[in-house]
């Protein structure tokens, strides 16, 4: 098995399998550990900047990746977006969000590993692995974008990486497409799948607990014993809706 088959034909499936099985195992066995493991109590000044920059940047970057990897070039062309216009938009938006993300991650890395002795003993091995792998993914991605697309002549990943990426989910990986891809992109991709494999064992699981249900749930939660209650507390104040305080029932 050549290195390219191993890296781009086998490794993604290994990583995805670990991702799925790992999450099932973690969810069933470790609700207690399923948390952001926020360290804000130990340090909040650097976190106040680093964490929002990191999270907002990451959300923007993920959206960009979804657009770049999942939407075929033929679709955007059919929509009347020229290759040049697409490239300009992608590079501009990608560079801005990538910079926000990179700034955030630098602050978080500095905070955790350099400046704040308080975080040393609360940092676990899974955190270190997760931080190192994410840093490799982010900096290779950022560096590749800068070298090839901002400073360089431009690299059309939509003809190679994106096609290969979609082929993974068709269970027929086009490994050949990845052989000629610039080295930085290759590292970025391999490390990204490493991050996917690390995910279920790290604090990244908190992503799946984004509290969207909070927006609609009754504010005061009652439980009878261990079971969530059927209790109804009618809104006694001002019968009309719109209150931020509907206390009905919790699930």
């Amino acid at each position: 098995m050549s290195w390219s088959v191993a890296a781009f034909g086998v490794w993604p499936y290994v990583a995805l399998a670990v991702f799925v099985v790992g999450h099932v195992w973690r969810w069933r066995s470790d609700q207690m550990g399923w948390t952001t493991r926020s360290s804000q109590i130990s340090e909040k000044r650097l976190l106040a900047w680093g964490s929002p920059l990191f999270h907002v940047g990451m959300l923007a970057v993920l959206l960009g990746h979804a657009a770049g990897l999942l939407v075929p070039a033929s679709v955007t062309t059919a929509l009347g977006i020229s290759e040049h216009a697409y490239h300009l938009l992608a590079v501009t938006a990608g560079t801005i969000s990538g910079t926000v993300l990179a700034t955030g991650v630098v602050l978080l890395l500095l905070r955790r590993f350099v400046l704040k002795a308080r975080l040393r003993l609360v940092t676990r091995r899974a955190d270190v692995v997760m931080y190192v792998v994410s840093a490799v993914v982010i900096f290779c991605g950022m560096w590749a974008t800068l070298q090839h697309n901002v400073l360089g002549a431009g690299y059309d990943y939509r003809e190679t990486i994106a096609v290969w990426f979609r082929s993974i989910f068709a269970a027929n990986p086009s490994v050949d497409l990845m052989v000629g891809v610039p080295f930085l992109y290759q590292v970025h991709v391999v490390a990204a799948f490493a991050l996917i494999a690390v995910w279920p064992f790290s604090r990244l699981v908190h992503v799946w607990s984004v509290p969207v249900g909070y927006l609609t749930r009754p504010l005061i939660v009652y439980r009878a014993g261990r079971q969530t209650s059927e209790l109804v507390r009618p809104s006694a104040v001002s019968g009309s809706g719109g209150s931020d305080y509907p206390v009905r029932r919790a699930r």
């Binding site: 607990s209 509290p211 249900g213 909070y214 749930r217 504010l219 005061i220 939660v221 009652y222 439980r223 009878a224 014993g225 969530t228 209650s229 209790l231 305080y245 919790a250």
Partner: peptide, 15 residues
């Protein structure tokens, strides 16, 4: 605290 908890982990026992 119960009202502010995004994940519904804080609760008041009925009994």
């Amino acid at each position: 605290c119960v009202a502010a908890c995004p994940s519904g982990a804080m609760y008041k026992r009925e009994q």
